[in-house]
Amino acid sequence: MKKSLYFSLIFLAMFTACKKGFPVDDDGLLITTRSDCYVSSFEILGADYQTVRSKAAVVDTTAQTVNVEVLFGTDLKNLYPQFTLVTDAKLDPKIPGKVDFSDLSNPKQWTVVSGNRKVKKTYTVYLTVQKIN
C-alpha cells in the first residue's frame, strides 16, 4: 500500500516537472503570440531631457520611416530618441543612452521585433533641422 503511494507521488512529480513554462527571449522578455510589428509614436529629447521636436514626428508604418524635424540650434550629437512600439514588440538595437544624429546623410535605423519574435521591420529615422526662413 505504502509502496504504491510513493510511486504515485514520483509520477506526479515527474509530470508536474515537465509542465511547459512561459517562453522568454534572450533579454528575458516574454515571447507572446502577437505578430504586430510597428512603431506607434516617436519622441526625441535633448541633453536637458526636454523635447527638441519642432512639431510632431511623422511615423509611416508602410514605408517604415520616421520623419522628425528638430529645433534650430539642437545639439545633434547628444540626443535621446524614444520609440513607442506596439504591444509586446521590442527594439533592436537597444538605446542605452544618447545617440549621435549629426551625420544627417546617414540616417539611423532600428528594427522592431514583434511579440512572437518572428516578424522584424527596420525603421529609418530621417532627422531634419529647423531652418531660418
Binding site: S54, L71, F72, G73, Q130, K131, I132, N133
Partner: peptide
C-alpha cells in the same frame, strides 16, 4: 526673435558658428 525658429535667449562661445 527670429521668424520660423525658436532662438530667444542664448549663450554661445566665441567659436560658435555665425548662424548661432
Amino acid at each position: 526673435a527670429i521668424t520660423g525658429v525658436t532662438f530667444n535667449h542664448a549663450l554661445v562661445a566665441p567659436t560658435a558658428s555665425a548662424e548661432y
